[in-house]
């Protein structure tokens, strides 16, 4: 064994793999990290929160410890009317802070400066994020100017306006409350993304599904869940194509009520046991009646039950309709 070919070989394997990783991971990381958050990115990460996949705060992905998005028609503290209404993101006690409040340098130039300056997110960022997590914080998106350009930034409304989570939720009321974070978790857990992509392609299909996203549209999003195997329409801008909650209701309960040729599964199980009025939903009866309708023995399909406010389907529809 005079010629130790394996020594040279091992070094070469390590060297080539290392070089390949420098080119494909280290170099692109400069480009990817220089992305400046757009307003879309701020909306997405504030409404989704720290994590919509597996994480410490919600290891079983039940939709607990999530931020809640509210639309405020009046200031929860002073009572002054807002026109147009203001969207606020309520992080109650125990909810993990959004990714780029923890790591503001990922927001990108300008957005970081304004968020830490005007937005006062410094108090809850970095190693201090547990402070905000303990007491709860309300965020909004502010609009400021940086280097002569309009820039959206994260505003800690608890610090700047004195809004506290409970009062903000109470001021909004259930009608203006949207469980977007829990809804995106449903999108991931129920595997919607195995068929519906979140990425209109940069080639042709944006003419149907809307504009392809920009570089800075993803900062702070985790997981991005683009999807790779499209068997159904892209959903990135679905809220602008179809904003009807009633249509969503029918379509999720049984897609073939509104589109006979759909191959989407029924998501009636997301309604849970009881409907909005607290009555037990009789799925067997519904399915039997639907079969009669499908085979022509009934003129109208059975009535789709209204969902309870704390049902999973409510969160999912909240999220889908937030995709503008």
């Amino acid at each position: 064994m005079a010629f130790k070919e394996y020594r040279l070989g091992s070094a070469m394997v390590g060297g080539s793999l290392g070089l390949s990783m420098i080119i494909t991971i280290f170099l692109p990381s400069f480009d990817l990290r220089s992305a400046v958050s757009t307003k879309v990115a701020l909306e997405k990460q504030l409404s989704a929160g720290f994590d919509v996949g597996f994480g410490y705060a919600d290891p079983l992905l039940l939709g607990i410890n999530r931020p809640i998005t509210v639309v405020l028609e009046a200031d929860p503290k002073t009572g002054a009317k807002f026109d147009p209404p203001v969207t606020a993101y309520v992080y109650q006690s125990g909810v993990p802070m959004p990714p780029n409040v923890r790591h503001p340098n990922d927001l990108g130039k300008g957005v970081q400066d304004l968020s830490e300056g005007l937005g006062q997110i410094g108090g809850v960022s970095g190693s201090n994020h547990s402070v905000g997590q303990k007491e709860g914080v309300v965020f909004t998106i502010g609009l400021g100017e940086f280097d002569g350009e309009e820039v959206s930034y994260i505003e800690n409304a608890t610090a700047t306006r004195g809004w506290v989570p409970e009062a903000t939720l109470a001021a909004a009321g259930d009608k203006n409350t949207f469980k977007i974070s829990q809804g995106k978790t449903e999108f991931v857990v129920q595997g919607c993304w195995w068929c519906h992509t979140l990425l209109p392609e940069q080639t042709q299909d944006w003419q149907v599904f809307g504009a392809p996203p920009y570089l800075g549209d993803f900062n702070g999003e985790n997981p991005t869940a683009f999807g790779s195997d499209r068997k159904a329409p892209d959903l990135l801008h679905v809220g602008t194509r179809n904003s009807s909650r009633e249509w969503m209701l029918l379509h999720f309960f049984n897609p073939r009520l509104v589109q006979v040729n759909s191959i989407m599964p029924r998501f009636d199980y997301l309604w849970g046991e009881k409907d909005a009025q607290g009555n037990v939903i009789d799925y067997d009866k519904w399915r039997a009646e639907y079969l009669e309708y499908a085979s022509g023995k009934r003129v109208y399909p059975p009535e789709v039950p209204d969902y309870a406010p704390d049902s999973e389907i409510r969160a999912l529809i909240d999220w889908v309709l937030s995709l503008k």
Binding site: V13, L17, M21, I25, P28, S29, L32, R33, A35, A41, Q45, F50, D51, G53, F54, P99, N100, D106, L215, F218, N219, G220, E221, N222, P223, T224, F226
Partner: peptide, 26 residues
Amino acid sequence: MVGIVLLVGNSPEYFHLTGLSEAYLT
């Protein structure tokens, strides 16, 4: 190499990388 790939490829999860970095590393 597959060990290295799994170690680095899952870094978005344990280091909580977000956005396009997460998508690209996936």
